[in-house]
């Protein structure tokens, strides 16, 4: 029995962690496993792709032509991994950020989990990759406890905080017991905002551009009066744009000046 699994998402979403975890824990059910990332020069901002093979036979070559399972967690990566899809591919996607219609043309079996929405509900969007790990592990029948051990090993110091540990545990549990959606898909509510957000008031005008914002939070940290804070609106990079309280804002210009992406401006009107 061999399963070829392709993971694709956004750089920074934790795709490699999911893939590595699956490869590590696979020996609970398979003789061999391999993992290889597909990487380019950028650390962020381009699709993050990983190839995992689990098999009872020896694995010689870590990449493949067609994926048995495609786990896709960001729509941007779809055109890069299209070449690995055929109608035998089982596609698993995050229904809280992608519409099922994206996959209609492949005639493949599709199922979904609203992983981003679940993680949001737990209170930490970053645990979404643990939700997905649980889903994939269960799907290929590797051991629940072994997989959790692999997660703990790979996330290491990131789990030292007790509240973080609890959130990850909740995420894992949610993912493991989730009944994958086959038809009635959750609404894709966690789509990135694409239009500029313009806010006026208190003699000021603020423009925030989700198409450019990377959610680095420099603007928030540079604001002397705490007029800026993180919102729940996603940008194109799967992080959160800031939101502004124009009453507190003093139009000092710090946010405009220090934004590395020229994604925010506040001016006096």
């Amino acid at each position: 029995m061999t399963k070829k699994i392709l993971f694709v998402g956004e750089g920074g979403q934790g795709i490699q962690t999911i893939a590595k975890t699956i490869a590590h824990a696979a020996d609970s059910h398979y003789q061999h496993s391999s993992y290889i990332p597909s990487f380019g020069v950028e650390q962020r901002g381009t699709p993050s792709i990983a190839f995992v093979i689990v098999s009872d036979e020896e694995i010689h070559y870590p990449r493949f032509e067609t994926a048995d399972i495609l786990v896709i967690l960001q729509p941007r990566g779809l055109n890069v991994v299209e070449q690995y899809i055929d109608k035998s591919t089982q596609i698993i996607f995050d229904s809280s950020i992608m519409e099922p219609s994206l996959f209609a043309k492949y005639r493949s079996d599709i199922s979904a989990i609203p992983a981003t929405a679940i993680a949001h509900h737990i209170g930490n969007p970053r645990v979404f990759n643990v939700v997905v790990t649980a889903v994939v592990a269960r799907m290929i029948e590797i051991d629940r406890i072994e997989t959790w051990k692999a997660i703990v090993l790979l996330l290491g110091s990131k789990l030292k905080d007790n509240s973080l540990l609890k959130q990850n545990e909740d995420a894992y549990h949610s993912g493991w017991q989730f009944e994958l959606e086959k038809s009635k898909f959750s609404p894709a509510d966690f789509q990135p905002e694409t239009r500029n957000i313009i806010k006026k008031g208190y003699g000021k005008k603020a423009i925030i551009m989700p198409a450019k914002c990377k959610g680095c939070n420099i603007c928030i940290s540079k604001c002397p009066v705490r007029a800026l804070s993180s919102s729940t609106t996603l940008n194109a990079f799967s992080t959160f744009i800031p939101e502004i309280d124009l009453e507190k804002c003093v139009a000092c210009g710090n946010c405009t000046q220090f934004c590395p992406d020229n994604a925010i401006s506040v001016t006096k009107e």
Partner: peptide
């Protein structure tokens, strides 16, 4: 191209691919 960008910026390369919070983007700006 919006006015926040320098005029010599290449529009086709917006957004750039530096990491979130990268200092390079501040220097280049």
């Amino acid at each position: 191209m919006d006015k926040l960008e320098p005029r010599c910026r290449k529009e086709a390369a917006i957004p750039h691919l530096f990491c979130p919070g990268c200092g390079h983007a501040l220097v280049l700006k």
